[in-house]
Design a protein around this nucleic acid. Structure first.
Lengths: 139, 139
DNA sequence: TTGCGTGCAAAGGTTTTGCATGGCA
DNA sequence: TGCCATGCAAAACCTTTGCACGCAA
């Protein structure tokens, strides 16, 4: 399960970028531009491959915001890797990512499995909607 | 507000397809293939333009399921609120998109709202995980 | 007749892939 | 040294767009 792989300069660069961008979303192109600004060159293919690996490991998440535009990635920090029993809520208005731990919601997984034979993956599943703050604002 | 536009053969064909596919999801390519099978030719550009129009009118919904794959469309019929009563499950292994209607799941929206002040948007939310068939295969 | 709808092909943008090279262990 | 990671460019892919023509009203 634990594929170590080699440690590379590009990998480190990307990880440092993740920490810097923690809680914010970015595209593959954002990553490339960020390092180009610093006169550091990373191939876009490498960026895609590293990001894909991180997504598979559940370290970062991949979102599809609108239309056929570029995919957004987001790093949520250490806490997300340890706690597998929480879900993510993403506000469509303010873009905030909310971490939700809730017993009743945890039952959702059990229900889907026993009643529908579907094993949900909370690491990748994101509930889209509107958060409390934004609801109040629009009233 | 109500832009009538012209009535065309392609429009009628698409509408008949929608009725046939009511409650199921399909891609632009699915539409093209469906009519090709019947020896009816419709330009793919026309399909995209018609679908876009229908989305803007709120007649059909557009989903962004996966990676760089094609967008999914869905016609839920006359009743406007029906779309809010089902969710989508996406199998991470076989890629199948499953259409799930379940009363207990409908309560999820209510729970999120009353307990967490979050109004979920089922039109955009997709549960990722592994479906029954794939679970059995991997055993 | 007017001008929207259509079809074709080309363009557009994002992501993936093949292949030779570079670099970690 | 053995192999994975990288970089480049090309390919793949879905979708949009420009333009001339067709067709509804």
């Amino acid at each position: 399960m634990q594929k170590t792989g080699y440690k590379t300069r590009q990998q480190d660069l990307l990880l440092s970028y993740l920490k810097e961008m923690q809680g914010k979303h970015f595209t593959a192109e954002d990553v490339r531009a960020h390092f180009e600004e610093k006169k550091i060159s990373i191939g876009i293919a490498t960026i895609y491959r590293q990001l894909e690996k991180l997504v598979n490991e559940g370290k970062i998440q991949k979102y599809f915001i609108d239309d056929h535009s570029a995919a957004c990635f987001e790093y949520d920090g250490e806490k997300c890797n340890s706690a597998e029993k929480h879900f993510h809520l993403k506000c469509e208005l303010c873009g905030r990512l909310i971490h939700l731990e809730c017993e009743e919601l945890e039952e959702l997984g059990g229900h889907l499995k026993t009643e529908h034979g579907f094993v949900i993956n909370p690491l990748r599943t994101v509930f889209y909607g509107v958060c409390t703050e934004c609801l109040n604002k629009t009233k």
